[in-house]
């Protein structure tokens, strides 16, 4: 059974990255009902900026420890991405607050294209490698192999998600965010500066995206200007699977999607008697999504959408 354990580990690591990115989608959607297509690109910028900082510090005679360099890169990535999140909302989305939702969606696509090409102009079209600064340790776990990096990714994601839950459920800021999500106009009347709250939501989402981006590039050892698109798409799927707008749902959806993909690639051949192979991995994931949505039209943990009368 070590193969199954291994596939579960693969899936859970992938899933915790999806979950972290999915949070950004779900938070923005919860408040603005906007699919922030550019969120995947923010993740990519996080990875790229971290690598740029690492590139500048590593092997440059600074004598810093590998871990310290990565940490500095991570902090820089978080800072830049937070600023980006703020600016994106301020420049591209705020003028469209009262516009039809599809107009905002197209703007989001536009922002995504712009960020992607900007990254290409800055860092070029080639893949950027993550230098081997962190020592890789492998552990045996019931016949399967797990690395220290994989453990670190899962632990950090869990901590961040728990932190976010506490923030939203138990702080003043969180209450203001929930109020704005419920009814923006009324929240305004209650003395909440909804513009600020929306900005804060974008900034928090961007910070999580930056962490996810750095984790992805460290895990796979490379980054690319195009990496945000697929990652964003998967994360968005995860958010919908869990029930978009619901923070716990995004976490559940992310982990589930990761495991589904992993098991799908591993076992779909055996399930279909060799007719379908691992090339149907994504079909499998979307198929599960469609089944879930047919049974529960607003996702696993999503609240029932009340018909607008």
């Amino acid at each position: 059974m070590d193969i199954l354990t291994q596939q579960l580990i693969n899936g859970l690591v992938l899933g915790s990255i999806y979950a972290l990115v999915a949070l950004g989608y779900t938070m923005v959607y919860g408040i603005l009902e906007l699919i922030n297509f550019a969120h995947g690109e923010v993740t990519m910028f996080g990875a790229m900026i971290c690598l740029a900082v690492i590139g500048a510090l590593a092997g440059n005679g600074t004598g810093l420890d590998g871990g310290v360099i990565v940490l500095l890169g991570l902090l820089a990535a978080i800072a830049v991405c937070m600023a980006m999140g703020f600016l994106i909302e301020r420049i591209a989305y705020r003028p469209l607050r009262r516009a039809p939702r599809l107009a905002a969606l197209i703007t989001a696509i536009g922002v995504s294209i712009v960020l992607q090409n900007l990254a290409m102009l800055i860092w070029g079209k080639q893949y950027v490698t993550f230098p081997p600064l962190l020592p890789l340790v492998r552990y045996e776990l019931g016949g399967a192999i797990i690395t220290n990096l994989q453990i670190f990714i899962m632990v950090l994601s869990c901590l961040l998600m728990a932190g976010l839950l506490v923030l939203v459920k138990h702080t003043r800021l969180g209450r203001a965010m929930r109020a704005t999500a419920q009814a923006q106009d009324i929240a305004g009347l209650m003395g909440i500066n909804t513009h600020t709250i929306i900005s804060v939501t974008f900034v928090i989402g961007a910070a999580l995206a930056a962490v996810a981006g750095v984790m992805v590039s460290a895990y796979y050892g490379l980054a690319h200007y195009y990496m945000g698109f697929m990652l964003g798409l998967k994360a968005f799927t995860a958010a919908v699977l869990g029930g978009i707008g619901n923070i716990a749902g995004a976490m559940l959806g992310g982990l589930l999607l990761g495991v589904i993909e992993s098991l799908g690639a591993g076992y779909i051949g055996a399930l279909t008697g060799g007719f379908l192979g691992s090339h149907y991995q994504d079909v499998f994931a979307f198929f599960v999504l469609i089944l879930v949505l047919i049974a529960r039209p607003s996702g696993l943990l999503g609240e029932r959408v009340v018909e607008r009368a």
Partner: peptide, 27 residues
């Protein structure tokens, strides 16, 4: 199958459908 879905749920299912068709054509 998507009659009950609204807005963005519909969007993601149609997106998935498009990808499923492309993956089948490719494989």
């Amino acid at each position: 199958p998507t009659l009950r879905l609204r807005g963005d749920y519909l969007a993601i299912v149609t997106l998935g459908f498009g990808e499923i068709i492309r993956i089948f054509l490719n494989n």
